[in-house]
Amino acid sequence: MVATGNVVKEFKIGNTRIKICDDYCRDKNKADVEAILKRIAVDAIGPLSVAAYNSK
């Protein structure tokens, strides 16, 4: 079963069709969005730091 949602962007990479939906954040206020972005940044900084260190 393929989930459907509010598609805001659709594109293809090779034979793969990609749909980006905003269902998770569409009804969020500015404070909620800031909290989501902060959580993403905190989750990403570790792997990004390791990758940057290892590329040297």
Score class of each variant (00 low, 15 high):
D43G: 08
N29H: 08
K56N: 12
S55I: 11
G5F: 14
I40R: 05
R39K: 14
L37C: 10
K38E: 04
K38I: 05
D22Q: 06
Y53M: 14
P47T: 04
V8C: 00
N29R: 08
A3L: 09
A35F: 04
E34H: 04
I13E: 12
V2Q: 12
I13C: 06
D43E: 11
L37S: 05
R26C: 01
N29I: 05
V50P: 06
E34R: 09
A44E: 08
V8L: 01
E34N: 05
R26V: 02
D23T: 02
I45E: 13
A44I: 01
Y24N: 14
A52V: 15
A51N: 14
G5Q: 07
K19A: 04
I20S: 04
V42I: 12
L37F: 03
Y53D: 15
I36G: 00
C21W: 01
F11Y: 14
Y53V: 11
A52L: 15
R26A: 09
N54Q: 14
I18Y: 11
I20C: 02
Y24R: 10
V50M: 10
F11S: 10
I36E: 05
D32L: 10
C25N: 15
D22F: 07
A3G: 03
I40G: 01
N15D: 07
K28F: 15
Y53N: 15
Y53S: 15
I20L: 10
N29G: 10
M1K: 13
K12R: 11
N29L: 08
K9P: 00
N15P: 04
M1C: 11
L37T: 07
I45N: 11
C21E: 03
R17I: 04
M1I: 09
S55V: 12
V2G: 05
V42Q: 09
I20F: 03
V2N: 09
A44F: 08
I18S: 02
R17N: 09
C25E: 15
I20V: 13
F11T: 06
K9E: 13
K9D: 06
E10I: 00
T16L: 13
D43Q: 13
A51D: 14
V7H: 03
A3Q: 06
Y24L: 14
A35D: 05
I20W: 03
G14S: 04
R39H: 07
A31D: 14
V8Y: 00
T16I: 15
V33T: 12
L48N: 11
D23E: 11
K30S: 09
N6G: 03
Y24A: 15
I40W: 09
E10D: 11
A31F: 06
R26T: 05
